[in-house]
Simulated scan of single mutants.
Amino acid sequence: MDLHPVERGAGSLVAPEHPAWQALLRQCPSDSYHQPGYLHACSQAEEGELCIALAEAAGQRMGVPLLLRSLPDGQVGWDACSPYGYPSPLASTDDPTSWRALWEGLRGVLAEYGVIAAFFRLHPLLSTPACLEAAVGVGRLVAHGPTVFMPLEVSEDTLWSGIRSRFRSNINALKRAGWRYQADDWSLLPVFRAIYAETMTRTGAGAFYHFPAAYFEALRDGLGEGASLHAIFDPEGRPASAALFLRHQGIVQYHLGGTASTALAEAPAKLLFHEAALHFRAQGARVLHLGGGLGGREDSLFRFKAGFSKQSATFHSLRMIVDPGRYARLSGLAVSEAGALPSGEGFFPAYRAPGCIAPQQGSRP
């Protein structure tokens, strides 16, 4: 699809560098996941053509990053999904009525460009009640589960007391034993990649999560100081745990990380998260968002993150059927069933489910 800044009706699909998107970034609270450097990195690791979908309604403007994907099995048309992370829609208003008009306007823009269905990842901290309530009118809003965040505009004592007591004991024991934290150092990239790859293999993560080297290099080059690598070394100087953090304005995101198998028993990630929180607090960040469990579940990963803070926010996604007739035909449904999205998470779009049209992976939470 040829992306260009020419307006069509009440909106357009443009590149992340387009002035209208840049204006929204200046006007609205945003995150690393909205920045062109991050989005271009995603385009190296995910299927689809990167764009910003812009819509105008009620005198306001909305924009949202999307990856446009050709329909499977050679069908004419597109579907769309958010890049990995929380690249939620941004709007120049938080008025509920305006949000409803903007969501409808966005659906109209996508329909004009031949998009059949769209999957949106919303933001646990930035997607407002007005945005969420209005989204219900254009699709199926799914609450995946809680994500953990650490407020950083507090005293060190308050930050420390918010950590689970057993975790505090573990952290103190690691410090006494000589485990060492190294902050914000891109020379750690080979260490990080080795530990991350080992962790993904050990946990049975899908192929999607085995990001290529070019992805990490693109994040470094595209986000500059907004992306940083941090690590913990054991008393013998061996790398034990590593993490990639993204920072934009006051929000820090724990993006990816892992722990070496040989260090699992000592749980060095506890020290890593605590030291990183202190590091970003000293830099003036407002919040460290640790995320949630796999697929939004309250699993062991979520419980580990919840050991650092009792504060949480819900991650939502939105499933929008833009063209019910074509969606029904592609999915083998009656047209009357196309709008009846499953109440749970399900597989969306349904026609990308294995065995439906082609064994291609659909959108992931």
Rank of each mutant, 00 (worst) to 15 (best):
T259M: 00
A135Y: 02
C81P: 00
S187H: 06
S317E: 02
L68P: 04
P212D: 10
F192P: 03
D323R: 09
A285Q: 03
P124C: 08
Q360M: 06
L132V: 13
R100V: 04
A80I: 06
E225A: 15
S261D: 13
R176W: 05
T199A: 07
A15Y: 06
V287M: 05
V191C: 11
L301Y: 08
E133F: 01
F315D: 06
I163P: 01
S309C: 05
S228T: 14
L39M: 10
H40P: 00
L110F: 13
D79H: 13
A350P: 05
K305F: 07
G9R: 13
F304C: 04
A334P: 00
G296A: 08
V335H: 08
I195E: 04
G178W: 14
G339A: 06
L223I: 00
L90I: 11
Y209K: 04
Q283S: 09
D31M: 07
T262E: 15
P89C: 12
A267N: 09
A260W: 02
A269T: 14
L264H: 06
V148G: 01
Q27A: 15
D184I: 04
G237R: 11
P212G: 09
G37W: 11
A91L: 03
S312K: 09
L25P: 11
Q283R: 15
V142T: 14
A263M: 01
P65C: 08
E49W: 09
F211K: 00
F308Q: 01
G178C: 13
V148T: 11
D299Y: 12
G344F: 02
L278F: 01
L246E: 10
L25C: 05
G292P: 12
P359Q: 07
G145Q: 06
L223M: 07
P96G: 11
